[in-house]
């Protein structure tokens, strides 16, 4: 086990845990934002740089600070490590820079984007970004393409987190046909010559996409998310690899959309198959369990569901943290 301190909060985690996961084990504001890391996708992380933190003490044995900010999603803790996240002005400044970089070429077409309301980039920009852009140049654009008949790729919105390519590689079986072509800011997600992705699990790309670059064509423009009601539901899925545990997004009597069940960090608990996601849109297809607890701080949680309970938990937690800090001082 290793003892780590993040923003003054002490915790003990198993060796080999990353700083990000250590922070997540406690939760709250000490958790750095993560736009590319996805715990269920091997090799993910390290790219977006939103999770950069400062290591002001490397370990008990080697207390020297690390010379540069490090990506918390890919840096493992050491016993005695001291990490600064939101308590470091340097980290906040770098993060503000990263948010600006992610936004300069982003179309900011939230009013017509299906992801609005559950978009990690929206949330990130709201929390860490600047109010106005300093970017005067033209934004890059691509044409929209269909990846098969169920998924739409809107490359203008992509932040190149690479998550969907890991899904294609690791979750959706079949040939490796989805990846990144070209370099730099002209890089794009693509299948080989717009080839359809033919796999029972390809729909999970939509769930892992932190922005509205990959959307569900069977639900596109159906409704703003905050007008739909997320319900936990399950069915006996015939696919042995699929748990059949989903969230159905209802509006009135209709199911507009089916997704995986996302946790507080917007990661799905289990990947689901394309039949559950795209084909089962009738209430009678599902056993409805009850309202989904949306923990993620976003437009939806701000308007709906258990928000007050969330705040209460937070307050209790902060009170405890403040008390520990005062005791230490």
């Amino acid at each position: 086990m290793a003892k780590v301190t993040i923003d003054g909060v002490e915790m003990e985690v198993p060796d080999g845990t990353t700083i990000l996961n250590a922070a997540r084990s406690v939760g709250g504001d000490i958790v750095p934002p993560a736009m590319c890391y996805y715990s269920k996708l091997e090799g993910s992380g390290g790219k977006c740089r939103t999770c950069l933190v400062k290591v002001s003490q490397g370990s008990t044995n080697d207390p020297r600070p690390m010379p540069k900010l490090v990506p918390s999603c890919r840096t493992t803790v050491m016993d005695g490590m001291v990490v600064e996240n939101i308590t470091s002005p340097e980290v906040l400044e770098a993060r503000k820079g990263v948010v600006e970089f992610l936004l300069i070429n982003h179309p900011l077409d939230c009013p017509v984007c299906d992801q609005a309301g559950e978009c990690d980039l929206q949330n990130l920009g709201y929390k860490h970004g600047a109010a106005a852009t300093r970017y005067e140049e033209e934004r890059r654009t691509y044409k929209k393409i269909d990846i098969g008949d169920k998924i739409k790729l809107h490359m203008d919105r992509c932040i190149l987190c690479y998550r969907c390519t890991y899904v294609a590689d690791q979750i959706a079986d079949g040939d490796r046909c989805h990846g990144i072509i070209n370099r730099g800011d002209h890089a794009e997600i693509s299948t080989y010559i717009e080839k359809a992705i033919d796999s029972d699990f390809s729909g999970n790309m939509i769930d892992v996409c932190p922005v509205g670059a990959l959307t569900d064509k069977t639900a596109r423009f159906g409704s703003r998310v905050w007008f739909t009601k997320p319900m936990d539901a399950h069915r006996d899925c015939e696919n042995p690899k699929c748990s059949g545990k989903v969230v159905v997004w209802e509006k009135g009597e209709d199911i507009l959309r089916v997704t995986g069940r996302k946790d507080a960090y917007h990661e799905v608990e289990e990947f689901i198959c394309n039949t559950c996601r795209f084909e089962k849109k009738k209430v009678s297809d599902w056993v409805i369990e009850g309202p989904r607890h949306i923990n993620n701080k976003s437009v939806i949680s701000a308007n709906h569901y258990e928000h007050l309970k969330d705040i209460k938990e937070d307050i209790v937690k902060y009170q405890k943290q403040i008390a520990t800090n005062i005791n230490k001082a």
Binding site: K47, C48, I104, N105, L160, R183, G184, D185
Partner: peptide
Amino acid sequence: ESCGQCSPCREGTGW
């Protein structure tokens, strides 16, 4: 020449 993996270099170099 930026490979485009990480956002500061991908977006910053073009800017």
